[in-house]
Amino acid sequence: MSERALTARPRARDHARVVGSWRAAWLRVEGHWTWYRRYWTSNLYSSGLQPLLFLVAMGIGFGSQVEPGAATGGLSYLHYVAPALLVAGSVQNAIGESTYPVLSGFKWQKDYLAVTSTPVTPGQLLGGQLIWVGLRLALAGTVYALIAWAFGAWLGPGVALAVLVAVATGVACAAPMMAVAATTYDEGTRFAAIFRFLVMPMVLFAGTFFPITQIPPGARWLAWISPLWHGNELARGAALGGLEPLAALGHVAYLAALFAAGGLAARHYFYKRLVV
């Protein structure tokens, strides 16, 4: 049976062909989805529920000791911290998804080499990775938002926009991280350093748990250049209101610029590593 089937010429619509760029990227997402369906429970736990632990511990537990005041905009600490925890979780997820998993595609599993042996190009592969990360973040963010809602962490429907902000901030961070992963040839020791010395300090000091006005003026620029601060400001603006349109535009522009620069760098290094 097999011989005959192998020689039989496929019908015209069954012929292999080159698909468009968006379609190619989407097929990569489809491949990931096939994998995700097998492993979604453990993934959803680590990406969606971890921020919830923070919300319970910080927002409800620690927050019970915090008086609403000027720093929290007169709101309860739970309301103050919930949108930022959404973004901070999203950024950590995004960076995690863009380090070892991407390096593995080049180095261990080598599935990137398999994908780019097909009509799919390295640029389309990268696009698929970014879309996939975005979808994962959207899912995790939604789960977080729904459960936080049960805790009474939201004031209104602005939370939907906050989830979008979280996804956008995460993807903006994922793009440059993928560029870093594509230029990593060792076992990825630098990823641990990035987590310890960039990501963790950013989560702690970029306006997630307290306003950056508490940071000494000389060091405040560190918060300004961190993508998470821009995301936090936008998410709070969306969930709680009170953000000036011009400031919002500035934050969006910063994240867009990070995404564009990171994406171009990643594209460059994906080609450099896969087309040699």
Binding site: R17, L27, G31, D111, A114, P119
Partner: peptide, 21 residues
């Protein structure tokens, strides 16, 4: 460079799709 976390069948499905099938 197979996808070691997918099944035999899934490997073929996913890969075939990259060819627009």
């Amino acid at each position: 460079n197979l996808d070691t976390e997918l099944t035999v069948r899934q490997n073929l499905h996913v890969y075939g799709r990259y060819f627009g099938l």
